[in-house]
Write a protein that binds this DNA or RNA. Sequence first.
DNA 1: CATGAAAGTGTAGACCC
DNA 2: GGGTCTACACTTTCATG
Lengths: 148, 148
Amino acid sequence: MASNIKMDDKDRLIVRLLSNDARMPVSELSRQVGLSGPSTSERIRRMEAGGIISRFTVDLDLTALGYPLQAIVRIKPRPGNMHIVEDMILNEPGFLDCDKVTGEDCFVTRLALRSIADLDPVLLPFHDKAETNTAIIKSSPLRGRMPV
Amino acid sequence: MASNIKMDDKDRLIVRLLSNDARMPVSELSRQVGLSGPSTSERIRRMEAGGIISRFTVDLDLTALGYPLQAIVRIKPRPGNMHIVEDMILNEPGFLDCDKVTGEDCFVTRLALRSIADLDPVLLPFHDKAETNTAIIKSSPLRGRMPV
DNA sequence: CATGAAAGTGTAGACCC
DNA sequence: GGGTCTACACTTTCATG
């Protein structure tokens, strides 16, 4: 297990700057943080090795990609259908997130759609193996924030 | 609204490579895509301008940051408390996502916790303004996938 | 979309506190 | 142990075909 790496304020600033622009050059990062280039590189490398930074990636705009609609779908498999339902979720590319949770529902998922007409066809195969509850997302006041 | 940019296979490959490592140099990207450096840079710029790429960022590991627990919390404000409840969510740093949805619940949120003991104190202030329903996340078979 | 020169950037080794 | 400095190799950018 990743032994808990300790972060100081400079580490936190580096992470915050990289969150806004992961391609920011080390030279500019170091300027804003107040360290030399090599020190800044070394801190980034340590945070990657320590597992704090799991990867550098891009945020894609689903609307621009042709998926202007999203829904939260809670899925409760009927007895004996747990694994098959999980596989069905993983194999339907529209599902973006899937969390296995305690409580009444078993899966809470996020589904991307090209149009509302696509909702029924996507959920239809589930209806003999699970109960589903769908809520269309009207807006997302908060996405992907990190705790301070 | 972002006029729908058309992407070809090379664009999709660029995006896929950048998703795995947003700091990959353009030189290596261009090698793998089979284009010159400037052409590759230009495609990245176009996808940023067209809104397909909303930003370059880092994925942080919440467990390594000291938040090993997450929960899905559905929040249904009592009449008249809609805006106050939304503000309370935005002002509690533990909430990572908040979606406003149709249906019975109004907000579906994702909450990060340092320990299970922190759940009650975080939700306590909501109890006179909303009904909440909490499901602890046992595992996340799928996080942040993009539709093919 | 590719090429080539100029400017900028990252990395490694030696050194310091 | 962590930080800095310098120099060299690599990368990006811009103008041009």
